[in-house]
Design a protein around this nucleic acid. Structure first.
Length: 216
DNA sequence: CTCCGGTGCT
DNA sequence: AGCACGGGAG
């Protein structure tokens, strides 16, 4: 078996099992979660989502004063910033009448550009929304993916989109696969491939070059 | 490259 | 008490 992206996936999946990520109540909640989770532990996001639960409809959150919204999402950190980002996201979402089905009809490539145009939504957040809320098979490359594959010894493009396309090129375009893979990488980064790696009992240790990265 | 920031780990 | 965290903008 060749040491490629599919191979690594197989090992991680066999070791950690299915992650079944983002079992949110609704695609809308997932989109809000995608913004709240920016550089934040998911644990904190759950608290924020819990505070938001009674307002968990686009119209209601859009009507909340931004200070009130900020207060509710405070546990997720960067709360004033994220309140603005949620507002600008909702301004965009409103142009689709807050209708997920309508959004899903838009061409995937065009939709990504629209999301990137929203203030506060960068490539990773856009891709998380596309993958986990809108069922678009797109590979989310985060800092963890970069760190893990770098250490393994993969040759990584610097640019986000180049890296993403390299991975997508080598994998079947499968929603479940992309969904699970991203989740598995996050899990693996937490369990073993941390900033200070815990290589003891790492499931992919025997195929890892253990390259030492300077920044990632 | 720096700031934004509260939470829960070690 | 120190530090990383499902990042993005200025």
């Amino acid at each position: 078996m060749k040491k490629d992206y599919q191979f690594i996936y197989n090992i991680l999946f066999n070791h950690y099992g299915p992650q079944n990520w983002w079992p949110a109540e609704s695609p809308f909640e997932m989109m809000i979660g995608a913004i709240l989770v920016q550089n934040t532990n998911w644990n904190n996001v759950e608290k924020a989502l819990n505070n938001l639960s009674e307002f968990m409809h686009p119209e209601e959150i859009d009507q909340l004063p931004i200070e009130k919204l900020a207060g509710l999402i405070r546990p997720s950190g960067f709360y004033k910033l994220k309140a603005k980002r949620i507002k600008s996201f909702l301004t965009w979402f409103k142009t689709y009448n807050y209708d997920i089905a309508l959004v899903k009809k838009v061409d995937k490539h065009l939709l990504r550009l629209e999301l990137l145009d929203i203030h506060g939504i960068g490539r990773e957040t856009a891709d998380v929304i596309l993958l986990y809320a809108l069922d678009t098979p797109i590979f989310v490359v985060d800092a963890y993916a970069r760190r893990i594959f770098y250490r393994l010894g993969f040759d990584l493009p610097n640019a986000y989109d180049s890296f993403r396309k390299q991975i997508e090129k080598e994998l079947p375009e499968d929603l479940t696969l992309y969904n699970e893979y991203h989740a598995l990488l996050v899990q693996h980064a937490k369990d073993h491939c941390k900033a200070n790696p815990l290589c003891d009992r790492c499931p992919i240790l025997d195929v890892c070059e253990r390259r030492v990265s300077r920044s990632v």
